[in-house]
Design a protein around this nucleic acid. Structure first.
Lengths: 199, 199
DNA sequence: TAGCTTGCTAAGCGCTTGCTTAGGTCGTCG
DNA sequence: CGACGACCTAAGCAAGCGCTTAGCAAGCTA
């Protein structure tokens, strides 16, 4: 199911996280019990507490690593080669494709923020602000270099991120098109939205 | 707080629904208890069951009326005067403004689908399909009349709806700009995204 | 005024929840 | 071989859950 977290040890902790991703992603955090997670990972309910101090800690581990992955992806794309339009095309393609391919993780990342305990919530909000800032400055870059034409940069940045984030809400294993095609489609729409010259 | 459902009688039922909207919209359905709802409405826990057969029935009432409102809004805009671009401008402006102004109701409508009991879930999914179809046929109309230029109509329709729906996720009472301004901003972005001539 | 309906509460039932405790098994190393 | 640490389970606890029951007070009708 998930070959994420290749470095998480021991193996049982990774199996628990994978089971939690499936359950949180399908039913939501509050609708999932610790028994659901443990038995899906092939263990007794108590085994979860050998590897995690609480149910919320499992959520935090998933949410933090997902946010870090998303930020790394966006940062790398924004720092890549080419003009603002080329970099934005890569950014949207990857961001959207990730939200489709990893839609269960992405759902947890995007929609279970309020279930996080206080210190983890703050950490994750900081990561989100960084992601916002990267997208905003890429749009600013494009506008000042004459590649983009938008009236309000804040609204435009929010719209770009919204397009990607909302994919996690509706995308399922049966959805069409495949994640990469969807990403490319959306990248075209975003460039048009930003008034890119070549679009 | 909410002057929605002016026709819901008796008054106590409306107060319960308003309290449920506040709680479900802030914390989510599963994180809200029937005691939360009842005490927020100034009643004892048992009073809820005088007016609703279950907690899920309260959710259903909120979700159904919200979906009906959204569909009516979208249908009216799509059937309005002007060319496809003008009608799309009205549709997006109202759809986005509603998701901002009524963000708590909208959150329940958009993110608590899976908590609905089976018959209500089916009914609500049918309403959602109708909303999708209205937007899709408006885009088709615009493409065939030469007003819009998009490569894939399905993706474009999804993107338009995503932009509006995702507003419910992040918009709060403290957010800027006000709902109507945001709606107008987003309408401009959508017209550009659809390759509208005048944009 | 008697009897019924409507709208509510106090009390609590049966069950599930997140989590704990006590103990067992297995591989590793002195 | 014996002690230890890593990993796991059976059993269960206290708290909180959705919902029910029994009954009371106010207002309408006859």
């Amino acid at each position: 199911m998930t070959d994420l977290w290749p470095d998480v040890r021991p193996d049982a902790a990774r199996r628990l996280m994978a089971a939690a991703v499936a359950a949180f992603g399908e039913r939501g955090y509050h609708a999932t019990t610790t028994r659901d997670i443990a038995t899906a990972a092939g263990m007794s309910p108590a085994a979860l507490y050998v590897h995690f101090p609480s149910k919320a800690a499992v959520l935090s581990a998933i949410s933090r690593s997902g946010h870090e992955k998303a930020l790394a992806m966006v940062t790398a794309a924004a720092a890549g080669p080419g003009d603002a339009a080329a970099r934005m095309r890569v950014l949207v393609t990857e961001f959207v494709a990730w939200h489709a391919r990893r839609h269960r993780v992405a759902r947890i990342v995007q929609y279970e923020l309020t279930a996080l305990p206080e210190p983890d919530y703050e950490a994750v909000v900081a990561l989100r602000r960084q992601t916002d800032a990267v997208v905003r400055s890429l749009i600013e870059d494009g506008v000042s270099s004459g590649v983009f034409r938008v009236s309000d940069i804040r609204s435009a940045a929010r719209a770009v991120l919204s397009l990607g984030i909302d994919v996690a809400r509706w995308y399922t294993a049966e959805s069409k098109p495949d994640p990469e095609t969807l990403g490319a489609d959306y990248a075209g729409l975003v460039l048009a939205m930003l008034g890119a010259a070549g679009a």
